[in-house]
């Protein structure tokens, strides 16, 4: 490497800076491509809900939780509370677009579903929402992945992904793990 004059150094450095810029640009282009073509977005959803009265809201009232089919929409509503999910098992069909909606009445939680890209924080005050397609069938783990208190380690639920033809909603449009 030449370093005889300041000009030499400047020239090498400009080349390197150009390379760095190219790398950063390439990464950004990849992200923009994913956003434009695959519609990849972070799970932003500034939809407020009061944690103090969450259990009275209707949508996130205990009896309304779990998976429900409503026309073409398949939505599962799940509450994360210290230190369990309600319900503790949800059913989802494979290869269909589904929406998961989460809320918490108490503190910060978060979820991921192992082996998938489903991942969101659950913040008191907001409904968290993830749209996804499950491609593999079977029981997947859905742990709480954010510290929520001393019982955090024992807080997890199961996502039961079933083949499309076995996904049969009841007369009220609901599908539960018990019914299967």
């Amino acid at each position: 490497m030449r370093a005889d004059t300041e000009q030499d150094i400047l020239k090498t450095e400009l080349w390197w800076t150009a390379l760095v810029t190219a790398v950063v640009t390439a990464i950004m282009l990849a992200i923009i491509y994913a956003g434009l073509v695959h519609h990849i977005n972070p799970p932003s959803n500034i939809e407020t809900v009061d944690p103090k009265t969450l259990h009275l809201t209707g949508e996130f009232t205990e009896g309304n939780l779990g998976t429900r089919v409503d026309g073409s929409q398949i939505t599962s509503r799940i509450v994360a509370t210290q230190f369990a999910f309600q319900p503790q098992c949800i059913v989802m069909p494979a290869n269909r677009t589904v929406t998961l909606r989460f809320a918490t009445p108490d503190v910060i939680h978060g979820i991921l579903v192992t082996g998938t890209n489903v991942n969101t924080m659950i913040i008191p005050g907001y409904v968290s929402q993830v749209h996804t397609v499950f491609t593999k069938t079977g029981d997947l783990l859905m742990p709480c992945h954010e510290f929520c208190g001393l019982g955090h380690s024992q807080m997890w639920a199961t996502v039961r992904v079933v083949p499309e033809d076995e996904f049969k909603p009841g007369p009220d449009g609901r599908v539960t793990c018990d019914a299967r």
Binding site: V20, S44, I46, T120, I123, G125
Partner: peptide
């Protein structure tokens, strides 16, 4: 992965995050 911030502002801050690679490189 938080719900309470929008995807647009996340994108804006992500652009600057990508640039943090520059001083290290």
């Amino acid at each position: 992965m938080d719900p309470q911030q929008s995807s647009a502002f996340k994108f804006l801050q992500m652009s600057f995050t990508a640039l943090v690679a520059a001083p290290t490189l």
